[in-house]
Every structure is written in C-alpha cells, then in structure tokens.
C-alpha cells in the first residue's frame, strides 16, 4: 500500500511535464522592471536577456522588479551564489539597467 502511494506520485512528474508542454506559454517571461520606471522597454533577446531567463529562475522565482540602487549588489551576490561568470554579470547589468 505504502509503495503504491509513492509510485502513484512518481506519475506526478511526467504528468506535470506533459501538462506544461501541452499548454502554449504566452508572453515570454519579460524583462524585469527597475522599480519606479514608467518606461517599458521591449523584451530584449540580447545576451543579458538570455542569461536572465536561463539563470534567474533556476533556484527561485525570478524577481520581476529591482530597486535601482541595489541592482548591482544583487547581481554581485547572485554571481557568487549561482557561480556566474564575469561575462554573465556584465550582460545582466546591461540587460536590467542599461
């Protein structure tokens, strides 16, 4: 009985992948906003955008807004935590705060 429960739950993973792929994701995970901006720049497909999309939801929900004064601090912090390259750091800074 116990193992049945566990194995039934194993089904959960392929099922959620299936449901995930079956849905069409719309509105690409856009560019995070620096807080208090009114300007909304078009979602960028440049290097920084790719680094952001690939990396910033690896461990936690990607933050969608930044306090401008601390953006550099956060990226530096995450560079250590997520072992990002210097190039990644520069690309992220250009992407979030051009």
């Amino acid at each position: 009985m116990k193992l049945r429960v566990v194995h039934a739950c194993l089904l959960l993973v392929p099922l959620s992948v299936f449901i995930g792929f079956a849905q069409k994701p719309g509105g690409t995970a856009g560019k995070p906003q620096q807080r208090a901006t009114s300007s909304s720049r078009a979602p960028s497909t440049d290097e920084g955008g790719l680094v952001f999309k690939a990396n910033c939801s690896r461990c936690h929900a990607a933050p969608m807004s930044f306090t401008p004064r601390t953006t550099g601090t956060v990226i530096m912090h995450m560079r250590v935590r997520a072992t990002l390259s210097q190039q990644d750091e520069q690309a992220l800074l250009t992407f979030i705060a051009p």
């Binding site: 208090a36 901006t37 807004s65 306090t67 401008p68 004064r69 601390t70 953006t71 550099g72 979030i96």
Partner: peptide, 20 residues
C-alpha cells in the same frame, strides 16, 4: 516604501549595501 521612493534618475545599477 523604498521601492516607491526610488526615482527615475536612479536607473543605473547601483552597488548600495542592502538588507535582504
């Protein structure tokens, strides 16, 4: 509050210390 107080003129990445 801090997020609302940030002004548009601060739109480059700052390296200010923070408590998160």
């Amino acid at each position: 509050l801090t997020s609302q107080n940030a002004s548009d003129s601060e739109l480059t990445a700052g390296h200010v210390p923070m408590i998160s």
